[in-house]
Amino acid sequence: MTTLLLRLGGPLQSWGTSSRFSRRGTDRVPSKSGIVGLLAAAQGRRRTDPLEELLALRLAVRTEQAGRLERDFQTAARAGERTPISISTRHYLADAVFLAAVEGDPALLEGLQESLRVPHFPLYLGRRSCPPVGQLDQGLRELSCVEALQQEPWRASLWFQKATRRPQVALELVADCEAGEPGAELVRDEPLSFDPRHRQWAWRSVKRHEPVTRDNPEFIENTATVPVTGQGVVDLHDPLGVL
């Protein structure tokens, strides 16, 4: 079995699976629809092209950095007019980072890896206004998607690792599973067609695994603290602490 790892990070992301009318929501983890769309764009597939090959991939996602929920209120009006013709509320994840693993045919994954390095169409994290930051492709692993995410080091942003004052972190892991498996949940985010004339999604089963415990490489074990009257506790950096 072979797995391709993707690091999904950027200022904004939006992975909506239940958006309706003027309200555009986002899930807390990337959707399969969004990741399949990203891979299809990298390959140069059109919206009307078949997706069976990509839908056969098994998906798992680990949350490296949960980010925070942001809401954007948008209006649009015709040129020269002040009355808006559309009003919408859109939700985004700000400063979030995820590690996604897609498992499948080795030849297909090798081709996807090359496409991600030189994508045919622009890539984005759920919406066109959300471009990725950094290198998406994190390499191939000869493991299942769940096993790969259980072994990978923590991939959060450097500033976030430094701000997390713990030696270890527990990272949430969600993966595809068989229907009826204990603990399985149904989500409607498997794209059958991206054709704008007839978009279709199907249900898939996912399971929340035990959180993955990873070391924090930026944790400073010997940080000293001293109390300051009226100000709680102040951290002191000890430049000779390593000695």
Score class of each variant (00 low, 15 high):
E114D: 15
S157C: 08
L140S: 10
T3K: 04
F98I: 13
V29Y: 13
G232H: 07
R20T: 15
G232W: 10
E221V: 10
S88L: 15
L6D: 08
L109D: 02
R28Y: 11
V226K: 07
A170H: 15
V228R: 15
D95M: 05
V97I: 14
C130A: 07
L123N: 04
L143Q: 01
N222E: 12
G104S: 08
S129F: 11
W15M: 06
Q231E: 13
P196A: 08
E142W: 11
V174F: 08
R24V: 14
R62L: 10
A77Y: 05
R82Q: 11
L93K: 07
H209S: 05
Q13R: 06
R141Y: 03
E221G: 15
I87C: 11
E53D: 12
G139S: 06
L54V: 00
E178M: 13
R58I: 05
A79F: 15
R90I: 06
D72W: 12
V212E: 07
G232N: 00
P239N: 10
A42Q: 08
P119K: 03
S129H: 05
L39V: 02
A224P: 06
L171Q: 04
T2K: 10
L93S: 12
V228C: 14
P122Y: 04
A107R: 04
L57I: 03
L158F: 15
L99F: 04
L54I: 12
A42P: 01
L240W: 12
G9N: 02
D137T: 10
E178R: 13
L4Y: 00
A56H: 09
E178H: 08
S86R: 09
A96M: 04
V212F: 07
Q138R: 04
T83D: 10
A40W: 01
C145L: 05
E221W: 10
A42I: 03
E221P: 12
L173N: 02
F160A: 05
